[in-house]
Structures are given as structure tokens and as C-alpha cells.
Design a protein around this nucleic acid. Structure first.
Lengths: 342, 342
DNA sequence: GCATTTTACGCAAACGGTTGCGTGAAAATT
DNA sequence: AATTTTCACGCAACCGTTTGCGTAAAATGC
């Protein structure tokens, strides 16, 4: 346990005060040139490095931000994390990670833990289960700013970056219509999810914008289990007049749908076309591709959220600063075509 | 910027000294019961919480560990991270993340940054590029222990947990032999990778243990690019006497191989069988499965590595403790059959 | 040559909590 | 009743660095 050299050590060697050393190391103008040089020379010799813990303590900052998100096994979130990391590095921050694993209690524990460790700010993408936000509101007391991204609370006056699914969906549905599709179904998620309600609403408006009528029989939902997914797609292909195209809740659901459709003897992209919400980067390896995916820009969302967070952190650091208004941004999604070549 | 309550605040209110408050809050026996109660009551009333930064500073600990790994977009590493998180939570630590993205310079920067932030220890899975370890040796000076997992340095006297591929490979090759395969090829990685040399060696010994001879013509390699992967598999299927089974470097390579084999009109698992090293959890959705994968237990490796790290950290904390010998463990890989049912 | 400004540095407090040691008063022992 | 022990608490240093303020000495002005 050999101690690391401190500024005291340098002071002792040079017979100057610690304050002089401290200033000399930071090139403070009120320290003479020769002294400054001598201090810096000795500092280098004995391998001095500032003890950030001391500074953090003094400044009441830790120079680390927390990011809590559902699961890094989802490519969307691991891409998002990279966005956070890059922004953090640019701001000389480091990143404390917490995976909520879609578990509300775990999310609460993680936030609590991050608060205890006095992170300077927190980025969050919510659990599917999360519908109360007390554990975040609570952070105000500690002056810990929070920015949400992608999975954001249904609430005003919060800082967030999210993705507008409408633009991508409109592109997709317009594309389908231009290809002659008239019955475009929807396999939605569980009713309790905010994402589900949102998708339905956007789906409806996109149909309208293409002069198509909303037909309830081609709107089904899945609980996101494999069985649920299969049930949903079967319901659609069993109809007298099946939809020729289907918007699917996400790529995982789509994988099951494609398998089911094939098993039923139908051909993907000729008998039935799919559009999904992109979260898997594996389509290039698959035999059957969806027509398109709706890209939600994980990296852009998270890095912009991180920028917001640093803005809030830095603003709080300047003494008389007035509180910033809520920082909010919505990124347009985009359709990405896969099958166009064939 | 309203200040958080401190122990001074409590002391003032109760007209006792801060030391008494400090002790009362931790139920120190030398403080009278009534005083203790009064202190704790006031503490609760004003919502006091310890400032960990202060303690961290005093104890010269940050109660956070760093984990640096190639990329969380690989399911192997995101599973590994979950193992680290769970172990960290059990030990009241938090986890600072850094993705090296297979970039040596970035790995160095991350380690440097973690050192600056005085993490109590670091877990590492190396970049493919990494072949020098000075940036880790350097951490000794700061008493920051390091434990490697999965991708470990080729070096003695280090702490590590890794996975022995031999056991899984032996199971797989034995299985293939029992199914009648006699020519079992290998698509290996780039020569410069340590993993490549290791796989070749194990492949050779497993053949030997099954009384098969090593044939150079059915050992090919890929640079892991798509083109390289295709070239490798084509080389094998173009042989007069193609192998009936192939051990493949990893799942990404395998995806290309399967596509190529199909395109060539061959049937997977009848004309040619594959065994790969598991890193993708997506096989359940694929049309063509490999016969088996060799499971390397990301979660187990990383959580054991984390345990090692905490052992080292805690050992360093007790004053007269002698240094621990290198903590090392090798987990046996296992074959996981996919195709057995069909 | 004396008053004034500037230069270069030191002192000490502060950040929040922990802890070894000291001490007066109460309790126990003889 | 005198002595010893126990109890309950306070004092002060410490962790490493920053920073406002004070001040000798040097430089400048007249």
C-alpha cells in the first residue's frame, strides 16, 4: 500500500506551501515562472497525479453519469450505449451502467444506487413496466438532472429525446400503397404498453393520409410471446381476405411471423409483405427479409440525450444561472428498404 | 442549489459534536441509547444521507469497478456485463463501462480514464488487437487490481477466468464421429489472433483423441470479412472430397457459410454439418441450424472474474494482508446440440 | 529616497465524515 | 468514603486539493 505522491510531497521537497504547488501545477499567473517550472519538474519526477476523488469531493461532483436502460442484449440499446460513451468521453465523463432488464423494481434499485453514488446526471430508457416516475422525481432533491430517451415517460416538463415513428411509418405505408397494397394489417403489442397505443394511432393516421380506411379485422395484437406472435399472424392469414401487407410491432415478432407464413406455404414479399420496427441487425443473414424496417436511430437519440444532460449539468454548475427549460427533441424515424433490390 | 443536510446540521440542532452524530448514526456502542435515538430521529426528519464522496475520499476508495470489453453488441459480452453487474450489486459496487470496440488505442484510453477516476479494480476482456499489456501493468502503481476474462493475455502471473474450448470441441467432434463423419474440416480465423492458434491446436488434439488424422486440405481460414468467409467455405465445398462436417470459427462466419452452402444447392445437416462457437442466440429463428454450438458461458466467466476482483480489492483493504497469489480459473466449455431433435 | 503599486507566495478555511485519544461525571468496587 | 472502572461524549487531526485574503519583498513612480 505505497501511497501515491500528493501535492504536499512536492511542497515539502521544494520548501514551498501547498497552495503554491497547487497553483503552479495549474499555471496560475500569480506564481513566478521559476517556481512554476520547479514545481512541475518535481511533479513529473515523482509521478504526481491529481487525486480526483479529492476534487470531486470538494466540487461535489463525480464526473460520472449513470445510464439505465432495459437490456444491452438488444442491439438498439447497445448502440445507444455507444452513443452515450462517445458523448461522455468528449466531456471527460465516465459512464456507470445499469440494466433494468425490464424490471421496474430493478430500475428503482439502480436509480437509488446511482443517486447514492452521486452521479452528476442520469440517462434513462424506461422499462416496459414503468408507469410511475417518483424514483426519478426524487432526484430533483439531489440536483441530479435526468434525460430520458426512446422509452420516455408520458409526462410534460421532462427532458427527453425520442423518435417519432410517424415519419417512418408514413414512408412505409406510402411505399406499400404505391406497390398496390390496399389491405395493410397491423400486429401490435400488448395494450398496456405505451408503444402499442402510439403505434396504433400512427398507423391509423398514416392510413388516412393514404386514403385507406381503418379496418378492425386486420388489426391484431400479441403479448410478445412466441405463442402470441404465432396466434396473431395466424389470425391474419386465416381471414377470408387476408392483408397483403402487415406492419409488425418489432423484429422479434416478425421473425416468428415469417416462420409461420412460410410454414403455411405462403411466400414472403409476394403473398405477403412485412414492415417492422428495426431492432435487429441480422436481416442480411436471413433467407426472408421484410420489405422494410423503420429505423429509430439509437445512437443519435442517446448521444443527443447525453448532450442535453451535459448541458443541464454544466448549467447547474454556473452560480447564478437560471434553470433551463425542459430540453426536448424528437427525431424523425426513417424507412429502410431491404427488399427493393429483388 | 439547496445544500443537502450534513452531519454538522444534525450536530448543531442537537447541540452535540459531529463525532457523536457520526457514531450515533452507525450505532456505535459508546454512544448512549437516548442520544443515538435522538440523532437518528433528527437525521430522518431532515432527510440526512451520508455523502459517499466524502467517505470515498477518506477511504481512498470509489466503490466502483471498471469493465472494459470489446463490444456490447455481441451477445456474449452483454451477457458477461450482466454477470458483472449482478456481482457488483451484491458487493455494493457500481460498474463503469467502456467498450474498446476492438480498438487497441481506445482500450488504452479507457483504462487510462478509469485509472484517473480511481476505480477500485478493473475487469477486462481484451481487444483482438491487443498484444502488449503495459497499460495494465501500469495499474499496479495505483494498487488497482485487474482480472481478465475470456479474452485474456498470454502471460503468467495474471488474474483471469477463461474458457477451455477443448471440452466442448471434444464433445462435438466425438458426436460427429459417432454419427459417422470422418472428414471434419475447420474454418479458422486470422492467423494473428491468439484464438485462432488455440482453436487449431484443440482441433488437432480432438481429432487425435478420436483416431482421426489431421488433413491440411480441409483446414482453411478466413479474415472474418464476409468475402473471406465465403471464400473459405467455397474452398471446402469445391474439394474433390469435401468434408462432411465443419468446425467454424464463430457464429458470424457460420451464417455466411450456411448461406453459401444453400446457394450451392447443398443441404445443411445432411450434405454438410456445422459446429460453431456460440455467440449468437438467434438460431431458434433460423431455417438452418448448426448441429451444435460450443457454449462458453459468458455470465459464469464474468461473474467469477468479478468475484476474483472483489477478493483482491477486499484483501488489499485489510492492513497487514499478504498479497494474494494469482487468481485463475478455467471453465469447461460445453457442446449444445441444436439439430438433435430433427 | 520615500510612497505606492506590483509580484510572488503563504496561511488557513473549507468540502463531509471518521476515529484515536482524552476527560468529566456517574457508577461500581472495596 | 476513597478509589477504580465504566460510560458518554467532545476535541482535533486527517484525507488532498482549492482559493480568498493577507503580506513581505521587489519594482516602480515621483
Amino acid at each position: 500500500m505505497n501511497k501515491l505522491p500528493t501535492i504536499k510531497e512536492i511542497a515539502k521537497r521544494l520548501n514551498v506551501s501547498v497552495s503554491t504547488v497547487s497553483r503552479a501545477l495549474r499555471d496560475h499567473p500569480s506564481i513566478g515562472l521559476v517556481t512554476t517550472m520547479r514545481v512541475q519538474k518535481v511533479a513529473k519526477e515523482i509521478g504526481y497525479e491529481v487525486n480526483r476523488s479529492a476534487i470531486h469531493f470538494k466540487e461535489r461532483k463525480t464526473y460520472s453519469i449513470g445510464v439505465v436502460l432495459p437490456s444491452l442484449s438488444e442491439p438498439f440499446f447497445s448502440a445507444a450505449l455507444t452513443g452515450v460513451e462517445d458523448a461522455a468521453e468528449a466531456n471527460n465523463y465516465n459512464v456507470i451502467i445499469g440494466q433494468s432488464l425490464e424490471n421496474f423494481e430493478r430500475e428503482k434499485r439502480i436509480v437509488e444506487n446511482m443517486k447514492d453514488h452521486r452521479v452528476d446526471g442520469i440517462l434513462v430508457s424506461l422499462t416496459k413496466e414503468t408507469s410511475t416516475y417518483d424514483h426519478f422525481d426524487n432526484l430533483k432533491k439531489y440536483n441530479i438532472p435526468v434525460v430520458f430517451f426512446d422509452r420516455v415517460p408520458n409526462k410534460r416538463d421532462i427532458n427527453f429525446v425520442s423518435c417519432n415513428l410517424h415519419s417512418g411509418m408514413l414512408q412505409a405505408i406510402s411505399k406499400l400503397v404505391s406497390m398496390g397494397h390496399k389491405r395493410i394489417g397491423l400486429i401490435n403489442g400488448p395494450a398496456k404498453l405505451a408503444a402499442t397505443r402510439q403505434r396504433l394511432q400512427i398507423y391509423a393516421s398514416c392510413l388516412k393520409e393514404n386514403q385507406l380506411v381503418l379496418e378492425q379485422d386486420i388489426i391484431v395484437s400479441t403479448d410478445l410471446s412466441k405463442a402470441g406472435n404465432l396466434k396473431a399472424i395466424h389470425k391474419l392469414i386465416a381471414l377470408d381476405e387476408s392483408p397483403t401487407a402487415v406492419i409488425v410491432f418489432n423484429d422479434y415478432v416478425l421473425l416468428d411471423c415469417i416462420a409461420a407464413v412460410k410454414a403455411a406455404g405462403l411466400k414472403v414479399n409476394s403473398d405477403i409483405s412485412f414492415v417492422s420496427f428495426a431492432n435487429l441487425p441480422i436481416w442480411e443473414y436471413m433467407d426472408s427479409l421484410p420489405l422494410a424496417s423503420i429505423e429509430q436511430f439509437a445512437y443519435r437519440q442517446s448521444s443527443m440525450a447525453a448532450e442535453f444532460l451535459f448541458k443541464l449539468i454544466n448549467n447547474a454548475a454556473i452560480p447564478g444561472a437560471t434553470e433551463l427549460p425542459p430540453l426536448q427533441h424528437i427525431i424523425d424515424s426513417e424507412m429502410v428498404l431491404y427488399h427493393s433490390a429483388k
